[in-house]
Design a protein around this nucleic acid. Structure first.
Lengths: 203, 203
DNA sequence: CTGACTTTATACTGACCGGTACAGAAAGCT
DNA sequence: AGCTTTCTGTACCGGTCAGTATAAAGTCAG
């Protein structure tokens, strides 16, 4: 961390590491949601002052979007891994297990950022909410395609509805996130996943 | 509506109907969440001024709790009906269908108040959040008991884990709520429910 | 009518919100 | 050296938040 700028700019050099500060911002947004995270919360966690934040990241909206990018590339890697699994069941299992790992990391549980942001209130956050929903929809489409392929490949029965099954799996993931924020233990979430997988349609 | 006080008190009589005002408050809290609903939003929707609100309902916290009571008795009636169904499958179906009806009522979709409140941000709402989680936990216990009974009565296979199945069903309900707030259509949610029920363990 | 009592509306409180003006500090360029 | 450029900290902006002081208005008992 605190790596210097690769090409030293003109003017006074920045005294903090942008990547590290963004990681701290992500932590705050993840814990408190978009509206719940005040600029005071953010700047204190990032160790910088307000004007530095605005100079480096624009405004709260664009800081959140940058944090969201980091979240997707870092914390949602398990989703990309899951999609590459050979069977639909393994796709589901990797997603569910990865989701529990994700919400149970870092001591106290925090749910999925997508759920937190899209459920959180206020017309002020409408723009970021739409962004989150848009990103989620792309994932939903990809998952549906994956299940269509699985049915063609014979590892899902012919009678299943790929889009419906996608919505069920997404609902389970969202449920895991909600229950985590409500204080569910890892053991309870593991049991949710075990029971969910026990219901999964066999080929 | 606007029914008069049954026993006329001393002093100037109240000029609004408490029940009607509370119903309007519920509508606002349901749409915007606890923190997202400002006193200005509330008083405008209720048609009363701030001091009247405080005189009649205490403060924002206690107004929310009273609205929550109303929500449980009015909007969550389907849950009590569902619990009384003869088989576990019918319990699940009534809950899922009722949940979709619930989040799809009143034109634009709003999710479950429990989910909205428990996921919504900020340490200021911690107290009401704990209240919501506490009420939800009681429901979870009751549902687990219901599935244990179902297994004893033979309408659930012996190998299922009642608590795990309870968490799966709750997760589906929470997923329905989240997807509704994200703008899912009734048709999409119906498909979620159909696919979920198709997975339900048969006796 | 008078006084006790309660609800009404206006207008305010201090605290916090996201965002910024300003001036000083630290670097490169010439 | 000076000059330009960029960052840093302080101190502030108008707006909104939950909650309330105050006084007028309305209804009772006597």
């Amino acid at each position: 961390m605190n790596k210097p700028e690769p090409v030293p700019h003109r003017g006074r050099p920045r005294e903090f590491c942008v990547d590290h500060a963004l990681a701290q911002a992500l932590r705050v947004f993840w814990e408190k949601g978009y509206e719940g995270a005040s600029l005071t919360d953010l700047t204190e966690a990032m160790g910088i002052t307000r004007p530095s934040l605005y100079a480096a990241f624009g405004n709260k909206d664009s800081l959140f979007r940058k944090a969201l990018d980091l979240y997707e590339t870092e914390k949602l890697a398990y989703i990309r891994q899951a999609m590459a699994q050979p069977t639909a069941r393994q796709v589901a299992e990797r997603m569910l297990r990865g989701s529990v790992d994700n919400v149970m990391s870092c001591a106290q549980p925090h749910g999925c950022m997508g759920v937190i942001t899209s459920v959180a209130c206020g017309p002020e956050a409408q723009s970021v909410r739409e962004e989150v929903v848009k990103r989620g929809d792309a994932g939903k489409r990809a998952l549906t395609e994956r299940f269509i392929r699985a049915r063609e490949e014979g590892d899902l029965p012919a009678h299943v509805d790929p889009e419906g099954l996608m919505r069920v799996l997404i609902a389970l993931l969202q449920g895991i996130s909600v229950q985590a924020t409500q204080g569910a233990s890892r053991q309870e979430l593991d049991r949710l996943v075990d029971s969910g997988l026990a219901l999964w349609p066999s080929a």
